[in-house]
């Protein structure tokens, strides 16, 4: 009910406001020979380095000899890191206290260049050239308001919170072109048009499972649901079509 109200208000706001276009390039991940993970992961490969986070540390492993990773970097980041997301020359770290942005221009020496603090919560991240999307889940994590938080990262060293969309306990999220998929557990997979990224527009909700995380991959949306995997065809990103469910 609350959700519908939020959606309604969002749509209303959009219809009143003049639309402005912002370039949102397709989010591609790292190098050609690596695969693609979801937004809840603690491991990611960019170029020939494996980056990993445990609760408090960021690690970089060189894959120069791919059969034998070699640790080249360790750095304390802060409290309760939860996720790592690579985009271009950056790593976005979702932590319970905020969003941290590292430059990996020098891959073996990640450099903290920006951060945005928020109230305690859980938060995966996805990003493109100018915007980063963060979901905050407060239940069991902290007092922050659960929802989708949109940051302007045109100035990458100073992320600016531009928009908050209240959602019930959102988890993982994925970006394909100007469509953002947000997993909201049993409340479904919420599909947002983010052509105007600071005015996300809810266009549909998929309720085929208990959604935890997604990977947009080669025209396919791979969803991690509580009982397995659901695949959607997203050749038209705004209208996912159910292809297959692989459950227990």
């Amino acid at each position: 009910m609350k959700m519908r109200l939020t959606a309604f208000v969002t749509i209303l706001v959009i219809s009143i406001c003049a639309m402005f276009y912002s370039c949102t390039k397709e989010a591609t991940s790292s190098s050609a020979s690596a695969g693609k993970g979801g937004s809840l992961t603690r491991f990611t490969i960019a170029g020939s380095f494996l980056y990993a986070v445990d609760n408090n540390y960021l690690y970089a492993y060189s894959l120069n000899n791919p059969a034998k990773p070699e640790k080249v970097y360790t750095s304390p980041v802060g409290m309760n890191i939860e996720t790592i997301y690579p985009y271009n020359k950056y790593l976005f770290l979702g932590t319970q206290t905020g969003l941290f942005i590292y430059s990996i221009d020098t891959p073996a020496k990640p450099l903290l260049i920006g951060e945005a603090r928020h109230a305690r919560s859980c938060d995966p991240v996805v990003a493109n050239d100018s915007v980063s999307f963060v979901t905050l889940k407060s239940s069991g994590c902290g007092p922050a308001v659960s929802g989708l938080y949109v940051y302007d990262i045109n100035s990458i060293t100073k992320p600016v919170l531009k928009k908050t969309v209240e959602l019930p306990d959102p988890v993982g999220l994925g970006l394909q072109d100007s469509i953002l998929y947000v997993c909201c557990g049993n409340a479904g997979l919420k599909v947002f048009n983010v052509k105007s990224p600071f005015l996300p527009n809810l266009i549909s909700i998929k309720t085929d499972g208990n959604f935890v995380d997604v990977i947009p991959y080669d025209g396919l949306l791979i969803c991690f649901v509580q009982d397995g995997i659901i695949l959607y065809d997203i050749t038209k990103p705004a209208t996912p079509v159910l292809v297959k469910k692989i459950a227990n």
Partner: peptide, 8 residues
Amino acid sequence: AGNIYAFG
């Protein structure tokens, strides 16, 4: 069910 990863 846990994390997913797509590869080829």
